[in-house]
Simulated scan of single mutants.
Amino acid sequence: MILKGFKEKSNKKYINKCVNNRVVATNNDAIKSVGVLVDSNEFSDLEWINSLINEIKVNQNNLKILSLFNNKKEETSVFNNTFSEKELGWKGQFKSQTVKDFLSTKFDLLINFYETNTLALQVVSATANAQLKVGINNANLEINDLIIETKIKDKEIFKSELIKYLNILNKISNE
């Protein structure tokens, strides 16, 4: 029990270190690659994610989805790339190759589409190499650059607001 507390504290320190060391480089380049981070207990609508990516005008090959999945015995995830909280080690290190691959990818946009403040999701979000990080209502304010005040069930509102802000920032390709 005490070790669990120390492990949690080391991961929170790691998140703060990532947030403080992050350098945000601004540019007017259109978004070409998108990462989506979800909690599969809250959200599992793969079709909605694909329609969002189409509206942002990003090729499906440049989309990576990572899902936190604390699997029960008979449940399966609709997402291919999953990880569990048990795979989070000390100081923000993951045991899962799936998470390591996701974190090694450079994204133009990272969508943190989860409401729970699970430590594993926050570590992935803080560590991810993305120019622009977008979250929803209960998201960690320090990790995200843009927070859209909606609930996860209001996904169409999230989509329209995200498109609106990306257009304002000239991040959607006109091609």
Rank of each mutant, 00 (worst) to 15 (best):
T116N: 15
Q122R: 15
E75Y: 00
S67R: 04
F43H: 08
F94V: 02
E115K: 11
K57G: 01
K91N: 12
A120I: 12
E85D: 13
T116Q: 15
A126K: 13
F113S: 02
L103H: 04
W90M: 11
V58I: 14
S77D: 04
N61T: 11
Q122E: 15
Q97C: 00
L132A: 04
N80F: 00
N59Q: 12
T118D: 12
S77L: 03
N112D: 11
D101M: 01
L110S: 09
L63Q: 05
K91Y: 06
S51G: 11
K57E: 07
V99T: 09
S67G: 08
K64E: 04
D108V: 08
K64V: 10
F43Q: 10
T127C: 10
A128W: 03
Q131E: 14
L88Y: 01
E47G: 02
Q60Y: 01
S104C: 10
L46D: 08
N50C: 11
N54K: 15
N71Q: 14
F43W: 03
K86L: 04
N50T: 12
Q93H: 06
A128D: 10
G89H: 05
F79E: 02
K106T: 13
N117E: 13
L103K: 06
L68D: 02
A130H: 03
D108I: 10
D101H: 06
V123D: 05
K95D: 06
N59H: 13
S51N: 15
F79C: 05
E47L: 13
I65Q: 01
K100L: 12
L119Y: 01
K73C: 08
L121Y: 00
K86W: 01
A130D: 11
L88E: 05
F113V: 05
E55H: 14
L88P: 09
K64S: 14
A120C: 13
K100M: 05
N70C: 07
L109F: 01
N81S: 06
V123A: 07
S96M: 02
F79Q: 04
E42D: 10
I49Q: 04
V123Y: 01
T98E: 09
E87V: 03
L68V: 03
E75S: 11
F43E: 10
